[in-house]
Design a binder for these strands. Structure first.
Lengths: 159, 159
DNA sequence: TCTTGACCCTGTAGCGGCTACAGGCCCTAG
DNA sequence: CTAGGGCCTGTAGCCGCTACAGGGTCAAGA
Protein backbone atom coordinates (compact mmCIF):
# COMPACT_ATOMS: atom_id res chain seq x y z
CA UNK A 1 0.00 0.00 0.00
CA UNK A 2 1.31 3.30 1.28
CA UNK A 3 -0.61 5.11 -1.40
CA UNK A 4 0.28 8.71 -2.01
CA UNK A 5 -2.64 9.94 0.05
CA UNK A 6 -3.26 8.71 3.51
CA UNK A 7 -2.16 7.28 6.79
CA UNK A 8 -3.26 3.87 7.94
CA UNK A 9 -5.55 3.59 10.92
CA UNK A 10 -2.65 2.33 13.03
CA UNK A 11 -0.53 5.32 12.15
CA UNK A 12 -3.40 7.70 12.84
CA UNK A 13 -3.97 5.98 16.14
CA UNK A 14 -0.36 6.50 17.16
CA UNK A 15 -0.30 10.12 16.10
CA UNK A 16 -3.63 11.09 17.62
CA UNK A 17 -3.42 8.93 20.71
CA UNK A 18 -6.84 7.49 19.99
CA UNK A 19 -7.10 3.72 20.12
CA UNK A 20 -7.67 1.93 16.81
CA UNK A 21 -10.92 0.33 17.90
CA UNK A 22 -12.09 3.64 19.22
CA UNK A 23 -11.44 5.31 15.87
CA UNK A 24 -13.59 2.71 14.15
CA UNK A 25 -16.19 3.18 16.86
CA UNK A 26 -16.20 6.94 16.28
CA UNK A 27 -16.75 6.29 12.61
CA UNK A 28 -19.62 3.96 13.34
CA UNK A 29 -21.43 6.47 15.54
CA UNK A 30 -20.82 9.30 13.13
CA UNK A 31 -18.33 11.37 15.09
CA UNK A 32 -15.66 10.68 12.51
CA UNK A 33 -16.48 10.81 8.80
CA UNK A 34 -16.26 7.72 6.62
CA UNK A 35 -12.70 7.79 5.26
CA UNK A 36 -11.41 6.83 1.85
CA UNK A 37 -10.19 3.29 1.39
CA UNK A 38 -7.16 1.83 -0.28
CA UNK A 39 -7.65 -0.70 -3.06
CA UNK A 40 -7.46 -3.45 -0.50
CA UNK A 41 -10.05 -1.84 1.71
CA UNK A 42 -7.79 -0.23 4.31
CA UNK A 43 -8.92 3.08 5.78
CA UNK A 44 -6.89 6.09 4.69
CA UNK A 45 -6.69 9.20 6.82
CA UNK A 46 -5.46 12.68 6.05
CA UNK A 47 -4.44 15.71 8.07
CA UNK A 48 -8.06 16.75 8.59
CA UNK A 49 -8.90 13.45 10.16
CA UNK A 50 -5.95 13.69 12.49
CA UNK A 51 -6.97 17.12 13.68
CA UNK A 52 -10.47 15.93 14.26
CA UNK A 53 -9.28 12.92 16.21
CA UNK A 54 -7.17 15.12 18.44
CA UNK A 55 -10.09 17.41 18.91
CA UNK A 56 -12.32 14.58 20.03
CA UNK A 57 -9.68 13.11 22.28
CA UNK A 58 -8.95 16.40 23.91
CA UNK A 59 -12.61 17.15 24.43
CA UNK A 60 -13.21 13.72 25.92
CA UNK A 61 -10.39 14.26 28.37
CA UNK A 62 -12.04 17.48 29.40
CA UNK A 63 -15.10 15.44 30.21
CA UNK A 64 -17.29 16.35 27.27
CA UNK A 65 -19.69 13.58 26.37
CA UNK A 66 -19.74 12.36 22.81
CA UNK A 67 -23.08 14.10 22.45
CA UNK A 68 -21.58 17.38 23.54
CA UNK A 69 -18.68 16.81 21.19
CA UNK A 70 -21.11 16.21 18.39
CA UNK A 71 -22.64 19.58 19.20
CA UNK A 72 -19.26 21.26 19.06
CA UNK A 73 -18.39 19.54 15.82
CA UNK A 74 -21.71 20.47 14.30
CA UNK A 75 -20.90 24.09 14.98
CA UNK A 76 -17.43 23.75 13.55
CA UNK A 77 -18.56 21.74 10.53
CA UNK A 78 -21.29 24.22 9.73
CA UNK A 79 -18.46 26.76 9.58
CA UNK A 80 -21.01 29.22 10.87
CA UNK A 81 -20.30 28.85 14.55
CA UNK A 82 -19.81 31.88 16.68
CA UNK A 83 -17.58 32.15 19.65
CA UNK A 84 -20.64 32.87 21.77
CA UNK A 85 -22.16 29.51 20.91
CA UNK A 86 -19.03 27.63 21.79
CA UNK A 87 -18.68 29.62 24.94
CA UNK A 88 -22.15 28.60 26.03
CA UNK A 89 -21.43 24.89 25.59
CA UNK A 90 -18.19 25.35 27.48
CA UNK A 91 -19.80 27.17 30.35
CA UNK A 92 -22.60 24.61 30.58
CA UNK A 93 -20.01 21.94 30.85
CA UNK A 94 -18.07 23.89 33.42
CA UNK A 95 -21.21 24.28 35.51
CA UNK A 96 -21.71 20.54 35.43
CA UNK A 97 -18.16 19.89 36.52
CA UNK A 98 -18.69 22.23 39.44
CA UNK A 99 -21.86 20.44 40.45
CA UNK A 100 -20.02 17.18 40.45
CA UNK A 101 -17.25 18.60 42.56
CA UNK A 102 -19.81 19.84 45.06
CA UNK A 103 -21.50 16.45 45.14
CA UNK A 104 -18.24 14.65 45.68
CA UNK A 105 -17.29 17.02 48.45
CA UNK A 106 -20.47 16.18 50.29
CA UNK A 107 -19.64 12.52 49.91
CA UNK A 108 -16.15 13.16 51.10
CA UNK A 109 -17.44 14.82 54.24
CA UNK A 110 -19.84 11.99 55.04
CA UNK A 111 -17.22 9.35 54.45
CA UNK A 112 -14.65 11.16 56.52
CA UNK A 113 -17.10 11.51 59.39
CA UNK A 114 -17.96 7.85 59.26
CA UNK A 115 -14.34 6.82 59.17
CA UNK A 116 -13.58 9.10 62.09
CA UNK A 117 -16.23 7.41 64.22
CA UNK A 118 -14.56 4.13 63.55
CA UNK A 119 -12.49 2.90 66.45
CA UNK A 120 -10.27 0.74 64.30
CA UNK A 121 -10.57 -1.91 66.97
CA UNK A 122 -10.73 -5.56 66.41
CA UNK A 123 -14.18 -5.79 67.93
CA UNK A 124 -17.14 -6.55 65.72
CA UNK A 125 -18.79 -3.25 66.37
CA UNK A 126 -18.33 -0.59 63.82
CA UNK A 127 -19.75 2.87 63.47
CA UNK A 128 -19.57 2.65 59.69
CA UNK A 129 -21.60 -0.51 59.53
CA UNK A 130 -24.02 0.87 62.08
CA UNK A 131 -24.48 4.02 60.05
CA UNK A 132 -25.05 2.09 56.87
CA UNK A 133 -27.42 -0.37 58.48
CA UNK A 134 -29.40 2.23 60.30
CA UNK A 135 -32.97 1.90 59.09
CA UNK A 136 -34.07 5.41 59.83
CA UNK A 137 -33.92 7.87 56.95
CA UNK A 138 -30.55 9.58 56.88
CA UNK A 139 -30.41 12.85 58.78
CA UNK A 140 -29.39 14.77 55.67
CA UNK A 141 -32.72 14.10 54.01
CA UNK A 142 -35.27 16.10 55.98
CA UNK A 143 -38.20 15.78 53.62
CA UNK A 144 -37.21 14.99 50.12
CA UNK A 145 -36.67 18.55 49.06
CA UNK A 146 -33.09 19.16 47.88
CA UNK A 147 -31.60 17.71 44.68
CA UNK A 148 -32.01 13.98 44.53
CA UNK A 149 -28.53 13.27 45.83
CA UNK A 150 -26.63 11.72 42.98
CA UNK A 151 -26.31 8.01 42.87
CA UNK A 152 -22.61 8.69 42.81
CA UNK A 153 -21.58 5.86 40.59
CA UNK A 154 -18.56 5.41 38.46
CA UNK A 155 -17.00 8.76 38.89
CA UNK A 156 -14.42 8.85 36.17
CA UNK A 157 -12.82 5.67 35.14
CA UNK A 158 -9.07 5.54 35.56
CA UNK A 159 -7.16 3.86 32.79
CA UNK B 1 -51.91 -13.51 49.54
CA UNK B 2 -50.59 -11.43 52.38
CA UNK B 3 -49.21 -14.53 53.99
CA UNK B 4 -48.22 -14.26 57.60
CA UNK B 5 -44.57 -13.86 56.73
CA UNK B 6 -43.39 -11.36 54.24
CA UNK B 7 -43.69 -8.15 52.29
CA UNK B 8 -44.17 -8.15 48.57
CA UNK B 9 -41.40 -6.80 46.39
CA UNK B 10 -43.42 -3.65 45.74
CA UNK B 11 -43.83 -2.98 49.43
CA UNK B 12 -40.14 -3.61 50.05
CA UNK B 13 -39.31 -1.29 47.21
CA UNK B 14 -41.39 1.49 48.76
CA UNK B 15 -39.97 1.00 52.20
CA UNK B 16 -36.34 0.70 51.14
CA UNK B 17 -36.41 3.21 48.33
CA UNK B 18 -34.84 0.66 45.99
CA UNK B 19 -36.54 0.23 42.65
CA UNK B 20 -38.35 -3.07 42.06
CA UNK B 21 -36.27 -4.00 39.02
CA UNK B 22 -33.15 -3.11 40.91
CA UNK B 23 -34.10 -5.44 43.75
CA UNK B 24 -34.49 -8.27 41.29
CA UNK B 25 -31.20 -7.29 39.71
CA UNK B 26 -29.47 -7.36 43.09
CA UNK B 27 -30.83 -10.83 43.61
CA UNK B 28 -29.57 -11.96 40.23
CA UNK B 29 -26.04 -10.74 40.87
CA UNK B 30 -25.98 -12.16 44.36
CA UNK B 31 -26.02 -8.97 46.40
CA UNK B 32 -29.43 -9.88 47.81
CA UNK B 33 -30.19 -13.43 48.88
CA UNK B 34 -32.80 -15.52 47.12
CA UNK B 35 -36.00 -14.84 49.06
CA UNK B 36 -38.83 -17.17 49.94
CA UNK B 37 -41.76 -17.34 47.58
CA UNK B 38 -45.48 -17.37 48.12
CA UNK B 39 -47.52 -20.24 46.71
CA UNK B 40 -48.06 -18.26 43.57
CA UNK B 41 -44.39 -17.52 43.16
CA UNK B 42 -44.26 -13.99 44.55
CA UNK B 43 -41.12 -12.97 46.39
CA UNK B 44 -41.53 -12.51 50.14
CA UNK B 45 -39.23 -10.25 52.12
CA UNK B 46 -38.67 -9.92 55.83
CA UNK B 47 -37.08 -7.34 58.09
CA UNK B 48 -33.58 -8.64 57.36
CA UNK B 49 -34.04 -8.10 53.66
CA UNK B 50 -35.24 -4.57 54.23
CA UNK B 51 -32.21 -3.71 56.31
CA UNK B 52 -29.95 -5.14 53.70
CA UNK B 53 -31.65 -3.22 50.94
CA UNK B 54 -31.23 0.02 52.87
CA UNK B 55 -27.63 -0.85 53.48
CA UNK B 56 -26.98 -1.34 49.80
CA UNK B 57 -28.85 1.78 48.82
CA UNK B 58 -27.05 3.89 51.33
CA UNK B 59 -23.69 2.53 50.31
CA UNK B 60 -24.45 3.11 46.64
CA UNK B 61 -25.34 6.71 47.39
CA UNK B 62 -22.00 7.08 49.07
CA UNK B 63 -20.44 5.97 45.83
CA UNK B 64 -19.43 2.44 46.75
CA UNK B 65 -19.42 0.15 43.76
CA UNK B 66 -21.42 -3.05 43.95
CA UNK B 67 -18.12 -4.87 44.21
CA UNK B 68 -17.12 -2.82 47.22
CA UNK B 69 -20.54 -3.38 48.72
CA UNK B 70 -20.11 -7.07 48.22
CA UNK B 71 -16.88 -6.82 50.17
CA UNK B 72 -18.61 -5.00 52.99
CA UNK B 73 -21.44 -7.51 53.02
CA UNK B 74 -19.03 -10.41 53.02
CA UNK B 75 -17.49 -9.00 56.16
CA UNK B 76 -20.85 -8.47 57.77
CA UNK B 77 -22.24 -11.84 56.70
CA UNK B 78 -19.20 -13.65 57.98
CA UNK B 79 -20.10 -12.03 61.32
CA UNK B 80 -16.39 -11.97 61.97
CA UNK B 81 -15.68 -8.53 60.62
CA UNK B 82 -13.62 -6.15 62.62
CA UNK B 83 -14.00 -2.45 62.71
CA UNK B 84 -10.48 -2.17 61.34
CA UNK B 85 -11.40 -4.04 58.19
CA UNK B 86 -14.42 -1.89 57.54
CA UNK B 87 -12.39 1.17 58.25
CA UNK B 88 -9.88 0.20 55.64
CA UNK B 89 -12.53 -0.21 52.93
CA UNK B 90 -14.00 3.12 53.94
CA UNK B 91 -10.68 4.92 53.84
CA UNK B 92 -9.83 3.39 50.48
CA UNK B 93 -13.07 4.67 49.15
CA UNK B 94 -12.49 8.06 50.68
CA UNK B 95 -9.10 8.25 49.01
CA UNK B 96 -10.70 7.51 45.68
CA UNK B 97 -13.28 10.21 46.17
CA UNK B 98 -10.51 12.66 46.91
CA UNK B 99 -8.64 11.67 43.78
CA UNK B 100 -11.74 12.27 41.76
CA UNK B 101 -12.25 15.66 43.33
CA UNK B 102 -8.67 16.59 42.49
CA UNK B 103 -9.13 15.41 38.90
CA UNK B 104 -12.31 17.37 38.49
CA UNK B 105 -10.70 20.47 39.89
CA UNK B 106 -7.98 20.27 37.28
CA UNK B 107 -10.66 19.99 34.64
CA UNK B 108 -12.48 22.89 36.15
CA UNK B 109 -9.40 25.05 35.94
CA UNK B 110 -8.74 24.17 32.31
CA UNK B 111 -12.33 24.75 31.32
CA UNK B 112 -12.51 28.05 33.14
CA UNK B 113 -9.33 29.24 31.45
CA UNK B 114 -10.63 28.29 28.06
CA UNK B 115 -13.94 29.99 28.66
CA UNK B 116 -12.17 33.12 29.86
CA UNK B 117 -10.17 33.33 26.63
CA UNK B 118 -13.40 33.27 24.74
CA UNK B 119 -14.45 36.68 23.49
CA UNK B 120 -18.11 35.78 23.26
CA UNK B 121 -18.15 37.63 19.98
CA UNK B 122 -20.13 36.65 16.99
CA UNK B 123 -17.03 36.11 14.93
CA UNK B 124 -16.09 32.60 13.90
CA UNK B 125 -12.87 32.65 15.80
CA UNK B 126 -12.85 31.06 19.15
CA UNK B 127 -10.14 30.39 21.64
CA UNK B 128 -11.90 27.26 22.87
CA UNK B 129 -12.07 25.73 19.43
CA UNK B 130 -8.50 26.77 18.76
CA UNK B 131 -7.34 25.15 21.97
CA UNK B 132 -9.17 21.96 21.22
CA UNK B 133 -8.02 21.81 17.64
CA UNK B 134 -4.44 22.60 18.44
CA UNK B 135 -2.40 19.69 17.14
CA UNK B 136 0.56 20.10 19.41
CA UNK B 137 0.56 17.99 22.56
CA UNK B 138 -1.16 19.84 25.39
CA UNK B 139 1.17 21.87 27.56
CA UNK B 140 0.13 19.97 30.65
CA UNK B 141 1.64 16.76 29.31
CA UNK B 142 5.38 17.28 29.39
CA UNK B 143 6.48 13.71 28.81
CA UNK B 144 3.87 11.20 29.73
CA UNK B 145 4.88 10.94 33.35
CA UNK B 146 2.02 11.84 35.71
CA UNK B 147 -1.12 9.71 36.25
CA UNK B 148 -2.85 8.89 33.02
CA UNK B 149 -5.27 11.81 33.27
CA UNK B 150 -8.71 10.32 33.65
CA UNK B 151 -10.90 10.10 30.63
CA UNK B 152 -13.35 12.05 32.73
CA UNK B 153 -16.48 10.43 31.50
CA UNK B 154 -19.84 10.18 33.08
CA UNK B 155 -19.05 11.66 36.41
CA UNK B 156 -22.03 10.71 38.47
CA UNK B 157 -25.26 10.36 36.68
CA UNK B 158 -28.03 12.65 37.85
CA UNK B 159 -31.30 10.83 37.72
C1' DT C 1 -69.87 -14.72 39.23
C1' DC C 2 -67.36 -12.01 36.25
C1' DT C 3 -64.42 -8.25 35.19
C1' DT C 4 -61.40 -4.90 35.87
C1' DG C 5 -56.88 -3.18 36.99
C1' DA C 6 -53.01 -3.32 39.99
C1' DC C 7 -49.55 -6.10 41.03
C1' DC C 8 -46.17 -9.80 40.20
C1' DC C 9 -43.37 -13.10 37.19
C1' DT C 10 -39.40 -14.22 33.57
C1' DG C 11 -36.43 -12.93 30.07
C1' DT C 12 -34.26 -9.87 26.99
C1' DA C 13 -32.48 -5.51 25.13
C1' DG C 14 -30.79 -0.98 25.75
C1' DC C 15 -27.93 3.09 27.72
C1' DG C 16 -22.40 5.30 27.14
C1' DG C 17 -18.04 4.72 25.69
C1' DC C 18 -15.49 1.99 24.79
C1' DT C 19 -12.49 -2.82 24.80
C1' DA C 20 -11.66 -7.48 23.44
C1' DC C 21 -12.18 -11.00 21.07
C1' DA C 22 -12.91 -14.44 16.63
C1' DG C 23 -12.11 -15.46 12.11
C1' DG C 24 -10.55 -13.82 8.17
C1' DC C 25 -7.75 -10.93 4.30
C1' DC C 26 -3.40 -8.33 2.85
C1' DC C 27 1.31 -6.99 2.66
C1' DT C 28 6.17 -7.07 3.29
C1' DA C 29 10.73 -9.01 4.71
C1' DG C 30 13.63 -12.87 4.91
C1' DC D 1 7.07 -19.28 0.05
C1' DT D 2 6.28 -18.58 4.60
C1' DA D 3 5.93 -16.01 8.87
C1' DG D 4 4.56 -12.00 11.13
C1' DG D 5 2.34 -8.02 11.46
C1' DG D 6 -1.32 -5.12 10.25
C1' DC D 7 -5.93 -4.47 8.75
C1' DC D 8 -10.96 -5.94 8.04
C1' DT D 9 -15.97 -7.05 9.90
C1' DG D 10 -18.95 -8.33 13.43
C1' DT D 11 -20.21 -9.55 17.94
C1' DA D 12 -20.01 -9.77 22.98
C1' DG D 13 -18.64 -7.86 27.31
C1' DC D 14 -18.00 -4.14 31.03
C1' DC D 15 -21.18 -1.32 34.96
C1' DG D 16 -25.54 -0.51 37.21
C1' DC D 17 -29.25 -0.29 36.21
C1' DT D 18 -33.97 0.68 33.33
C1' DA D 19 -37.55 -0.55 30.19
C1' DC D 20 -39.89 -3.25 27.83
C1' DA D 21 -42.87 -7.73 26.17
C1' DG D 22 -45.78 -11.23 27.20
C1' DG D 23 -47.64 -13.58 30.50
C1' DG D 24 -49.84 -15.16 35.54
C1' DT D 25 -52.22 -13.70 40.12
C1' DC D 26 -55.08 -11.30 43.24
C1' DA D 27 -58.58 -8.35 45.48
C1' DA D 28 -62.37 -5.22 45.00
C1' DG D 29 -66.48 -3.72 42.76
C1' DA D 30 -70.77 -4.52 39.65
Amino acid sequence: MKQKNGLSIGESSKQSGVNIETIRYYEKIGVMPVPERSLSGYRLYGAGHLKRLSFVRRSRRLGFSLDEIRDLLRLVDGDAYTCAQVRKLTLDHLAEIRRKIADLKRLERVMAEMAAQCSGDRVPECAVIDALFDTRPPAAEPSGRQPPMPTATSVMRRR
